[in-house]
Amino acid sequence: MNRRLFLKNTGLAGAGITVAGPVTSWLMENTLLPDIKPFFKLSLAQWSLHKAILETKTLPALDFAKKARSLGFEAVEYVNQLYGPELENMGLDKLVKELKERSKDNGVKNVLIMIDGEGELAALSKTERDDAIAKHSKWIDAAAELGCGSIRVNLFGAGAENDFNVWKETSVDGLGRLAAYAKKSNINVIVENHGGLSSDAGKLTDVIKTIGLKNCGTLPDFGNFCVKRQGGERWGAPCIDEYDKYKGVLELMPFAHGVSAKTYDFDANGNETTIDYKRMLKIVKDAGYKGYIGIEYEGNRLGEEEGIKATKELLIKAASGS
């Protein structure tokens, strides 16, 4: 069977999934091939390659679309903090133009931009919230120019995180005003469960429902449900209060405009060691979601490309019910 006919018969081509390398090997050996019909499309989150970009400097950030294509992906998710030097040297407008050309040259769709380091939308100070809205707004314009559907934002809330009622009030204001701006460009503003109260899915969805805008939603991440860390640290310290990840994804999915498939490590059978992917994908599927699932490998044992490929195999295998 040739590759084109194989993809057609398995239903993968119609699902927007390009299969290559180890994934093909796994599929060829699986006896349930005719029944594999993933309900989602795959994209690659740039953070999966952050070590190659920031640490070893073996991958220029501008070559992300090219690298994603070489790994078999047809859609990408950018991370703004990985473009520090380019932003300084080129400016945002020229950077966006360059990324747009490169994605087009490689036949890659731009899905979203993950925004970090542009101020806190839920800050206690209105002046700080205003500043964060202004800084995030330029990325909404960039996302629209790139052809993305969304930007991912954080909802920490400097000074407001210790009191839910205060955090909800500042979140509704900052996030709500940003989403209203984004609505003019048909861009979704989506919040990832990314630490602090944003990882308490019940509280985050309360904010989303209160804002009540269709373009204001969530980016459920399978692994980021630490609400509180030792010593009050935002990152790095051991987690001492973790929200149930399956309950969290279930609560976030009704508002999802994207899904992040986080992986850290894999056992001998290719399963994630801390996340039940079959269970997660059932939650996502039962919510009626048919959009992009972004692969975000954050492990240390495997190299980044190995981890990306292992995550891709796992998603397809879990979707098949095998």
Score class of each variant (00 low, 15 high):
I295E: 02
A68C: 07
I140T: 01
D267W: 11
V284I: 15
D130N: 05
D244C: 06
E161W: 09
W167F: 08
L12D: 10
L71I: 08
L12R: 05
G217P: 00
I240M: 10
T10Y: 02
G291V: 10
E242Y: 10
G195Y: 03
L281W: 05
I208A: 11
K184Q: 14
L42Y: 02
M280E: 06
D131T: 09
G174M: 04
G14I: 05
N9R: 07
I190C: 03
K282N: 10
E305A: 10
G91T: 05
R102T: 11
D265I: 04
D63P: 09
I295N: 03
V191M: 06
G84Y: 12
K104I: 13
A132M: 01
N154I: 10
L71F: 07
L82Q: 03
G299C: 09
P254K: 01
R234F: 14
M1D: 13
T274S: 14
A134C: 04
K100T: 14
E192Y: 05
K66G: 08
T58G: 15
K278F: 13
K168V: 11
G223F: 11
N162F: 10
G149E: 14
L146C: 03
K228S: 11
D265W: 04
G299E: 08
K285V: 05
E74S: 13
K214N: 14
A144F: 03
F64P: 01
T170N: 02
G223Q: 13
F164D: 04
A237T: 08
K203H: 11
Q81I: 07
G119K: 00
S199H: 04
S48N: 09
N89A: 15
N2A: 10
F225S: 02
N300Q: 14
I113A: 05
Y292L: 12
G157M: 05
R229G: 11
V76L: 13
L250Q: 03
K228E: 15
A256V: 01
K245I: 13
E98F: 04
G14T: 03
T56D: 12
M114W: 01
K57Y: 02
N186G: 10
S125P: 05
E77T: 08
E161N: 12
P60H: 04
W26A: 08
N30T: 11
G270I: 12
R301V: 15
L252F: 08
N193E: 09
M28A: 12
N106S: 04
V259S: 03
L197R: 05
A122F: 06
D244P: 07
E242R: 14
A319C: 09
V96E: 00
D93T: 13
E242D: 14
K209R: 15
M253Q: 03
G321E: 13
E101I: 12
S199K: 00
N188D: 15
I133E: 00
I208D: 11
T218A: 14
D286T: 01
N9K: 06
L42G: 07
A256R: 00
I113L: 06
W167H: 01
E145Q: 07
A122W: 00
T311P: 07
D35L: 10
E74H: 08
A319Y: 03
R279K: 14
I133V: 13
L62V: 10
L213Y: 09
F266N: 02
T274K: 11
A319L: 04
K138E: 15
V207T: 01
D131M: 12
E86W: 02
A237C: 10
G299V: 07
G321A: 14
N215G: 09
L27T: 02
K247Y: 07
T210H: 10
E242K: 09
E161G: 14
D244I: 08
L155M: 12
N269I: 03
Y181D: 05
